[in-house]
Amino acid sequence: MKDFIDPILVVVLLLNFVALGASRLRTLIQAVAVQGILLGFMIVMAHGSFMIWVALMAGATVALKGVVIPRMLFHAVREVVIRREVEPIVGFVASLFLGAVGTALALLFSKTLPIAHDHMSSLVVPASLSTVLTGFLILTTRSKAITQVVGYLILENGVFIFGLLLMEAIPFLVELGVLLDLFVAIFVMGIIIHKISREFSSVSTSMLSELKE
């Protein structure tokens, strides 16, 4: 089963680039949703056997990351966004380039860290790091509040990918807690986005620079 993880991770990396290059909000959210679903599959594969709590965990991940949260985001887009473009601060081509550089860096960096080869696919660490970097890239170069939420999700996905290495170490309860926290965070963010759109009649965070020195 573990042999399938590498190809899936490659898909995840590709999805990062899709997210970076997406000019429409829908595409962006869909990319994240797919990433979430793949993550759920990988949980099962990483563990290698079907136990109840593994299935539960994978199910919860798929449900939350692949279905509930993307639906919430779509809802928010319908609700508040007039223009459905991504509105990047740094252009798409440049973002893609930066993403490539980030992935290369992640590969290089993970080379410097000793990895237990016998344990798991060697792609996990670089994939995780590059996804985190992609998340950061979207967070810092996209001006809409919703895109920032998506960036945060991608970042979290990156962290989750790393978590695949440690299925035994992280108890089920904690995993669930993490997921719950994530969900509530996105939920609250959604509420705030809603309020922002009412308050400023825009969800661009460039409006949100009233508080400064």
């Binding site: 945060y152 965070a185 705030i192 922002i196 949100l208 620079s209 009233e210 508080l211």
Partner: peptide, 17 residues
């Protein structure tokens, strides 16, 4: 208020990241 909204947003996003 609008200002408190902005503060909350920043707090939440930076804190979560």
């Amino acid at each position: 208020s609008a200002r408190s909204l902005e503060a909350t947003w920043k707090y939440l996003l930076i804190g979560s990241v």
